[in-house]
Design a protein around this nucleic acid. Structure first.
Lengths: 237, 237
DNA sequence: CGCCGTATTGAGCGCTCTCAACGAGGGTGG
DNA sequence: CCACCCTCGTTGAGAGCGCTCAATACGGCG
């Protein structure tokens, strides 16, 4: 059983949208420098951090809570692209290339983050080849993740998308130092629908069929995966 | 009319998947160095350049023809992610981050490209901050494009996807020095279906409805856009 | 206790997929 | 030069999926 889960985990590696870089991966020196010039930001649930087309002001390191990265369309529909959790660093890509934010960012839960402004960040970056390489790898990882998800979303139905989304979220919702594979996925239905790329109603219905088949178990709004393999097979990857 | 088209072009900017970097954008010095150590590769139509999970051997500069970047799934289905045309540089991203290719690459038409091997490329790169910045911008651009397309593909139907795809391809198929807006989009139906993310049959049907509405005109296998604005409105972006 | 935001369930319709058959066109060998 | 074949494109029919609209249930908070 553990072998199968290991295999699943391995196959999903290129779908996991951990930002590709976390606090613990930063070069020691750069990390200390960044922390020294950072200031703390607190966000309430649903509060917006930045919007599409904003000029980037700096980078963010998530200490507590969850952040969603999404696009809001003219018709009001929303697509969630990434979800970040504690330890992850984000918002630096447009800074590296002098562009605007192509996406918006908001808190899913109450959050606490470190903010490092543009000038400080770029200065520290220019003094650390190691940090620069880390960030490049990170950008590359997120690109790969997006390409892989793109293919699934362009070609598969809701069952497949949701199965994939749940497996990914299970990783995201692991607690620090959590050993067991199964996490409590605490996300509201609307966000989950926007993440899986479907309507709220269809999401609920598909969740129900998963529950009937014992792939998952729901308690209140929380979701627990019961059968990892079945979900994995469903994704078709 | 030109004003409207200008506006459309502007709005589509972040959907165009020109690699973000072309020969003419390279710093002069780096360009000459790259050309000096490059060798020519010729590919026949349908020939594969590299495959997903291959280790990158070097970078490619497309001199003639068209290259598709795609993913092949276990069930045999294909999703085309990018299409490159002459002057574009590609294949460098995994090199920057020491990863594998997350996608495959093959010739849509007979192609001629310059190949610069890994070692030479990395050496030239390490001597040119300017080149490095260009490539970063390019990666960022492709990321933005992918995010935007992702949202459309995750949420919209075939009409919308195809409308967007055609507008993008119209740019791709412009000839060098072409002034008029309308291009001859020469692509076989299967590739177009795989690019728009639908089945061959549905693609054909949707093309027909576009033709009946005078949005496009087809001559043999070639497609010409007649009504840019209508297609743009359809995309919903 | 009532209100508001969130979640669930139902019904009906339109879209997109699949399966299947047919047509067109280019290339090859007789 | 023609007949054949093979690939590619086109059309039709039917089933199932996923969307929207609408009604109802739940649950936390004032």
């Amino acid at each position: 059983m553990n072998k199968i889960r290991g295999k699943i985990k391995d196959a999903l590696k290129n779908f996991h949208f951990y930002s590709g870089i976390g606090l613990e991966l930063l070069p020691k020196k750069a990390r200390i420098e960044l922390e020294n010039v950072s200031k703390i930001i607190k966000l309430k649930k649903k509060q917006i951090l930045y919007k599409r087309y904003d000029s980037p002001k700096g980078i963010y390191i998530l200490l507590k809570g969850k952040i969603k990265i999404y696009q809001l369309n003219y018709d009001g529909s929303i697509q969630i692209l990434f979800i970040y959790t504690q330890g992850e660093i984000f918002g630096y890509r447009p800074l590296l290339s002098l562009g605007k934010h192509p996406v918006s960012s908001a808190a899913i839960e109450d959050c606490e983050l470190l903010f490092v402004d543009k000038e400080h960040f770029l200065k520290i970056l220019s003094n650390s080849v190691e940090l620069s390489n880390q960030l490049l790898k990170s950008v590359n990882h997120e690109f790969t993740v997006l390409v892989n998800r793109f293919t699934v979303f362009a070609q598969r139905g809701i069952k497949e998308r949701l199965a994939l989304s749940l497996l990914l979220l299970n990783e995201k919702f692991k607690l620090q130092n959590q050993i067991i594979e199964e996490s409590e996925i605490k996300i509201n239905r609307t966000d989950l629908a926007n993440f899986a790329g479907t309507s709220l109603e269809n999401l609920v219905r598909t969740l129900r069929t998963f529950e009937e088949k014992k792939y998952i178990r729901t308690i209140g709004k929380s979701i627990f995966i019961e059968n990892f393999e079945a979900l994995y097979v469903l994704t078709g990857i």
